[in-house]
Design a protein around this nucleic acid. Structure first.
Lengths: 127, 127
DNA sequence: TCCCGGTACTTCAGTTCGTGAAGTCTTGCG
DNA sequence: CGCAAGACTTCACGAACTGAAGTACCGGGA
């Protein structure tokens, strides 16, 4: 891919810059998820791309895959520690999008967001 | 591109996920730069891609382009405020790369890094 | 005089990446 | 039987990215 391997920004860019990759991680940051849930949440992704991304992310050790031997087979994906470490990146993107791109949708169930980021807003800021 | 427009993460992903885009911003975060400097620093980028990215980034209001009517014509690119707001993202990527991908190179002239983060080195450093 | 080098690109042909639609495999249900 | 669910593959096509080459400009050296 011709990026410079010794540069940490390049290395991260390589992982992160496939189309949909960051969005998959954003979804998984909310909790473990199944293939078809991701497919539904990432409206517009092709199953081929989702499959490819998930596989690559698994190889990188960013997501973990767990198969259940049920009868429509069930597979769940979750972030590893290495994957969780990307969440601050996502949060930066979220605030950037809100501040500079005028995007204010939730796009994720809003459940995890508070947990993940805000430790405890100092009540003073509001006043 | 089929991303969800109301989602801030998606919107940012759209901007940021072209190959090289983040690296261009990383370079520009070190200070204004010319086309051929970027070309040299981003070893392996094709001039076409660089040109395309720079143009797109300009349209987005992330970089500013300034032309000097000199005799080999000179063009300089710099981050706007909207572009500078992406620097924390780059810094997250840098620490992620260092911590989780074992990449410890500098990849940028090392000059800017300190400038950007440290407000003013105590005069003792020079002596 | 003619060619060279530097800068900022554009054009071209070819490869890789991502897409939508459709197909695969398994078993439970009506 | 035939469809449904779930997790994918396969296929053919278009978009993105690539390397090599070309364009336009002019000053300077052989």
């Amino acid at each position: 891919m011709s990026y410079d391997d010794s540069c940490p920004v390049c290395r991260t860019a390589e992982i992160v810059c496939g189309k949909w990759t960051l969005l998959i991680i954003r979804d998984l940051a909310e909790g473990r998820s199944r293939f078809c849930e991701l497919e539904r949440s990432l409206k517009g992704i092709s199953p081929r791309t989702l499959s490819l991304r998930l596989r690559a992310l698994e190889e990188e050790g960013i997501v973990e895959r767990q198969t259940f031997p049920e009868v429509p087979p069930r597979v769940e994906y979750a972030l590893t520690e290495k994957g969780l470490a990307l969440v601050p990146l996502i949060e930066d993107m979220r605030s950037y999008g809100r501040r500079w791109l005028g995007a204010d949708g939730e796009c994720t169930p809003a459940s995890g967001e508070a947990e993940l980021v805000v430790p405890a807003p100092p009540a003073a800021a509001a006043a």
